[in-house]
Nucleic acid binder design. Sequence first.
DNA 1: CAGTGAGCGAGCTTCCGCTTGACTT
Length: 840
Amino acid sequence: MAKNLLIVESPAKAKTIEKYLGKDFMVKSSNGHIRDLAKSDKGIDIANNFETNYIVSEEKKKVVDDLKKASKKVDEVWLATDEDREGEAISWHLCEALNLDLKTTKRIVFREITKPAVLKAIESPRIVDQKVVDAQQARRVIDRLVGFELSPVLWRKVRTKLSAGRVQSVTVRLIVEREREINAFNSVASYKVVALFTVPNENGVSVILKADLTGNLKTEQEAQSFLESCKGAAYSIDNIEVKPAKKSPTAPFTTSTLQQEASRKLGFSVSRTMVVAQKLYEAGRITYMRTDSVNLSETAMVDIEKNIKKNYGDQYAFPRKFKNKSSSAQEAHEAIRPSYIDAKLIEGSNDEQRLYSLIWKRAIASQMADAQLEKTVVKIDISTNESRLTARGEMIKFDGFLKVYRETIDGEEENNDDGILPPLKKGQILNFKSMAATEKFTRHPARYTEASLVKKLEELGIGRPSTYAPTISTVQKRGYVIKESRDGKERKYKVLSLENDIVNIVTETETTGAEKNKLFPTDIGLLVNDFLREHFDRIMDFNFTAKMEAEFDEIAHGKEEWKKVVNDFYHPFHEEVENTLENSERVTGERKLGDDEKTGKPVIARLGRYGPMVQMGHQDDEDKPKYAPIKPPLSLETITFEEAIDLFKLPRTVGKYKDLEVVVNNGRFGPYVLYNEKFISLEKGEDPFTISLERAIELIDAKEKADAPIYEYEGLPVQKGKGRFGPFLKWNELFINVNKKYDFDNLSTADIIELIEAKKQKEIDKVVQNWEEQGIRVEKARWGRHNIIKGKLKIEIPKTVDAKALTLKEVEGIIEQNAPKKKTPAKKKAPAKKKKATSK
DNA sequence: CAGTGAGCGAGCTTCCGCTTGACTT
């Protein structure tokens, strides 16, 4: 038996460290926090000077019991949780839960999981730092007080099940304010002038030289007169300026920068990035993925330098240390880097390989030399005109880190405008080809993507690496924010051109305002945000977290007592809560839009029981008011009278088909056609207000065709469909995924049978495996009748029972029931089709 | 799982930050 027990937070880390330490050490993990405030009464006795009530949650009991047992068997317990506030607190909770002496139990820390770092840490143990623990307690208690006092206010004043908190409410505020900026934005048009020349390159071949006019022209008239003024002009190079420039690599990844780059380069959502990174971490491919540090360990830096010198040459290596830009960083780990830098490629899923490659390149590039560039600016005179044109070129003299990695910048389009210029000299006369003045419009600020939101949160010091992804999912789950794509609108723009001394004007169209996977506030999000801003502006302040952090630091440095900090915060806050509950109106978001022309009835928009809606008429009119739900992209806040009137036009009967009515309406899943008691969704972009009977019939016919069984197997119909997880077959209440190996549009009979049979076997295997894990010996199992044999008894499972979920005890119960009264084994017949518990 | 929008009111919801699985239509 090992003499020492060392406890870390992550099981994957435990495995690695166990290898470094040898047989004297048993290494186990706490799997994160092991205790938390109880939920009842907030887990805090406020009247009793904020006495805390910590409990071990149900799912952590096993971990704690296991650690407790292990701790009793060893001479010494070492607490090696992360070196940050939360890690210190976990060590403290471990002492409390495992009955370890806080005064003597050894606490060690390392910021990197390398053998030298771990061995060195063991040499200098300390004890748990109560001051840091107290800072964490203050953080925890304040978050609980804010969350559990604010949320109930929302239940009373807005809607049940809503939530508010230090992090999530400010996150919603960011999105709300961006949306309002966009709504208030006025796009301004101007004209961008670009001229094209033909110039011989080194080989005498004619190439295009592009030059533009600095600053846009304000009006069409200005643009036209400028082009007119260039008629018959000669163009000559007035000046050529060549300047050296350099580009430096960015730091290796933190959680936040990894999420941003994976979003831009691979199109991953932040949660997908974290799931894939977790897999890489567990497979030992990368260092820890929840980190705010940009540091690399000494050993990693040495390895990377060697790798660069070997593969790219000495001149490419340039070791450097990065400083963290974010002041809230706690740096308990390394930056995210490959565990073994020599592994440039790895095995694994496509996602894993791509994310790993990104991490590898970024880590390598961070230790490479600057790229040396040469920037050229060419000024071109126009003989008929005072203005000058500018051509720009950029040449890479030495690629440096660009050899492996190029960071993508948000909002920057991939353009190669600044390419290599052909040879030019001062005074050279250029051969004019054409010139165009294109109408451009200023763009509103960009809506947040998940990744750009994470970047903003990090800048504000709000949230932690482990919470960015969960926070984004919380604000969506609460219905404050939706992530969606929206189609753009067509817009006309003018292009004036000058070619062969003729000025031409044409109007072209472009699509603008299209959004892909952007974050939009919902009406509830807007209303809750405004309500919180009005009554709890202190919590909603973007600097609230930063101010609290400063207080927590004071506690950690022993300059403040944690309960005093909590006390000072709580009382004024609680007073606001009481005051708001008593004095504020219920939030309805009501807006009067106008009066109906025909009836004179008022038209209002408000928040109804089931969400935002428009209402025509008054509650206590003799005939009931008309209602219609408001759905995105319309919103309670921006809907106009005309848009509201349109909404009342649904449901709309478009005509009859085979003597049955065809009705169009807007439903929970968008616009649909209702025919013969069947719902058929309209396709994207189709408008329920204008759809014709012919088109509706087309959809009805298509639906009937699609729903028709494609085959019949064992007397049951086989249907096709496409769901969340791709194409599937439905048979006998089973969903059967059809993978890319099959041609889904042209499945053969053999394919169908093969798929169904494979699925059957898989279902049987699941049941058998479950039973065998519980020690039930299964000798024979077949579809439709899961025969289990225990001893000599053979029994069939009744139809009503979910065979897969059966436990040993239940199986024994069934055996008991079916057991023969006499000695002879009995058999009972039942059509034992396994019914899967289907969840919605 | 696609029509709702009144009112009464039991019993419930909810925070942030550490972790890792289980498993979907």
